[in-house]
């Protein structure tokens, strides 16, 4: 990385070489439909918790795939697992198990 002489603010880029892809690696094996998301946002649009909170499954899946996992635990703690998302998903992502598995990964890697 080039040094432009500024070091005051934190780097905003996703540093894909260093980001933490452990959750992604775990979930994509445990629940393969994690991979078939096309980020259409239907899950988030219908999400019961999303009405009240920052919970955004579509974004979370994307970020986990990039290794950006700060805040995942807090966001996921809002999920009621009601399953509306799985009933709405046009791709057939098994969203409830994706969430269940992300929780397991958080636990497994003490994240």
């Amino acid at each position: 990385m080039k040094n432009f002489g500024f070091s005051l603010s934190k780097d905003r880029q996703i540093d894909f070489d260093k980001s933490d892809k452990r959750i992604m690696d775990f979930v994509k094996i445990e629940e393969p439909t994690f991979n078939i998301c096309i980020a259409c946002g239907t899950c988030t649009a219908t999400c019961s918790a999303g009405n009240f909170t920052e919970m955004n499954l579509r974004k979370m899946i994307t970020l986990i795939k990039r290794g950006e996992i700060t805040g995942v635990r807090a966001e996921l703690s809002k999920c009621m697992l009601c399953g509306k998302c799985s009933l709405a998903c046009p791709r057939g992502v098994n969203t409830r198990n994706v969430i269940f598995k992300i929780n397991q990964a958080l636990e497994k890697y003490s994240l």
Partner: peptide
């Protein structure tokens, strides 16, 4: 209508 504005990152 309920949708997520995925580019804004928020339900709309």
């Amino acid at each position: 209508v309920k949708v997520e504005d995925t580019l804004a990152g928020k339900p709309l």
